[in-house]
Simulated scan of single mutants.
Amino acid sequence: YTFAPPEIDVAVGNELFLDSHTPKFEEDSEFFVYAFTAEFASSRDFEPVRFYIFNNKALFEAERNTFLDTTWQWIFTLCIALLIFIIIGISLVLLPVRKLIDEISQASSGHKRQLESRYPVEFDSLKQSINGLLQTEAAQRARYKNSLGDLAHSLKTPLAVASGTSGLPAEVNEALQQIDRIIKRQLKRASAGKSGWQHAIDILPVLYKLADAMDKVYQDKALTIELEMDEDTQFKGDETDFMELCGNLLDNACKAANNKIIVSASKCAGWLTIKVEDDGPGIPDDKKVLLLERGTRLDTYTEGHGIGMALAADLVSIYEGRMLIEDSSLGGARIVIQFPNHE
Rank of each mutant, 00 (worst) to 15 (best):
D9P: 05
A11W: 04
V12D: 12
H21V: 13
H21K: 15
K24Q: 06
F31W: 09
F31G: 02
F31S: 08
Y34L: 03
A38Y: 14
S43I: 15
F46K: 08
F46M: 06
L59T: 12
R64D: 09
L68A: 06
D69M: 06
A81I: 06
L82H: 11
S91P: 11
R98G: 09
K99A: 09
L100Y: 12
I101C: 11
Q106C: 10
S109Y: 07
K112P: 03
Q114A: 15
Y119I: 14
E137I: 11
S147N: 13
T157F: 14
V161C: 00
A162I: 10
A175I: 06
A175H: 06
I179P: 00
D180W: 09
I183K: 02
K184Q: 14
A190E: 08
A190H: 03
A200H: 10
I203H: 03
L204W: 06
V206N: 00
A213E: 12
M214Y: 07
K216D: 14
A222D: 11
A222V: 13
T224V: 06
I225P: 02
M229K: 05
E231M: 12
E231V: 08
G237L: 00
G237W: 00
E239M: 08
E239R: 10
N248R: 04
L249H: 05
L250V: 11
A253N: 04
K255H: 14
N259Y: 14
N259I: 14
K260Y: 04
K260E: 04
I261G: 07
V263Q: 01
D278M: 01
P284G: 01
L290H: 07
T296A: 15
D299N: 14
E303H: 15
L311E: 11
I318E: 02
G321R: 00
D327L: 05
S328Y: 08
I335P: 00
Q338Y: 00
P340N: 01
H342Y: 08
